[in-house]
Computed example of a mutant assay.
Amino acid sequence: MRSDVLLVARPGRGPRIECTGGLAARRTESDTVHLLSAAATPLGGDVISVRIIVEAGARLRVRTVAATLVLPGAGCTESHSTWDLEVDGELDVDPQPTVVAADARHHTSTRVRVGESGAARVRESVQIGRTGEHQGFWTSALHADVAGRPLLRHRVELGAGSVADDELGRPMACISELRYPEITFDGAGTLLELAGGGSLSTWQGQRLGG
């Protein structure tokens, strides 16, 4: 299944929402949109595409109503999601955790383009496996640019077959948060101030909330 979401925030009006496939979106406050599943997704073979545009002078918060459960499909274990974020106003993206269950393999790609006057917060949290599961795999690539200049190129992978897959101490959970232009905030794990402005916080461990 392919699912596409388009959110456009303009100053002085409610966000424009367009959805197809297994994802839906609902405006829950004047500047807030929640994403929710209209069907079981992502399963193996599924592709999810989310595009968000925040125009200058506009503000948008994006949330999810529940955690995302990634499952293998009948004939395929691999699924993909892409986030394309164009920010000239203020954008805050903080979905609930993604749980990669059984032997599912999920690939996430996020591209953030922030304008000169834009501000962005993008948070991602992932857990490999439900209780007793260790077979899943997840990878995420984050590309962030500000006014056409590279800000960050960041890649993380977890789970079976990842670079950190070690029986003695493999991480099974991750939280990553990018903020621009903020250079300090109370984030999880290690906080890194970026040369081009903004900051990145990363944490890895065994269990989210544990």
Rank of each mutant, 00 (worst) to 15 (best):
H154F: 12
V163R: 11
R149Y: 05
H154T: 03
V163S: 11
L142G: 06
L142N: 06
V146M: 09
A164G: 11
P150E: 13
D145K: 07
L151V: 04
D165T: 03
G148W: 08
V146E: 06
G161Q: 02
E157N: 07
T139E: 15
E133H: 09
V163F: 04
L158F: 01
S162N: 06
G136C: 13
G161F: 01
Q135N: 13
G159A: 04
V156L: 11
R149A: 13
Q135E: 15
R153E: 14
D145T: 14
G136L: 11
L158K: 00
R155C: 07
R149C: 06
G159P: 01
E133T: 09
L158G: 00
R155Q: 11
P150Y: 08
G136N: 11
V156C: 04
H134G: 11
V163M: 04
L151R: 03
A164Q: 07
A147R: 09
H134D: 14
R155I: 05
A164L: 12
A160L: 04
G132T: 14
L152I: 10
A144P: 05
L142R: 05
A164D: 06
T139A: 15
G148H: 08
S140M: 14
T139G: 15
D165M: 02
G132M: 15
L142E: 05
A141Q: 15
R155K: 11
A147C: 10
A141V: 14
P150I: 11
S140T: 14
H154K: 07
D165C: 06
L152D: 07
L152M: 10
A141D: 15
A164M: 06
G148Y: 07
G132K: 14
A160I: 00
R149M: 10
P150M: 12
E133V: 09
A141P: 07
H134E: 14
Q135K: 11
D145I: 05
D165G: 03
G148V: 07
Q135F: 02
V146Y: 04
H154G: 03
G161V: 02
L158N: 00
V163Q: 09
P150W: 07
G136W: 04
A141G: 15
G159V: 02
L158V: 01
G161M: 01
H134S: 14
L142H: 06
S162L: 03
P150T: 12
S162T: 05
L152P: 05
R149Q: 13
V146G: 02
L152Y: 06
V146K: 04
A147T: 12
R153K: 12
T139P: 04
A164E: 04
G148R: 07
L158A: 01
A141R: 15
A147M: 10
H143R: 13
W138I: 03
F137H: 07
S162R: 01
F137R: 03
A147H: 10
F137G: 00
E133C: 09
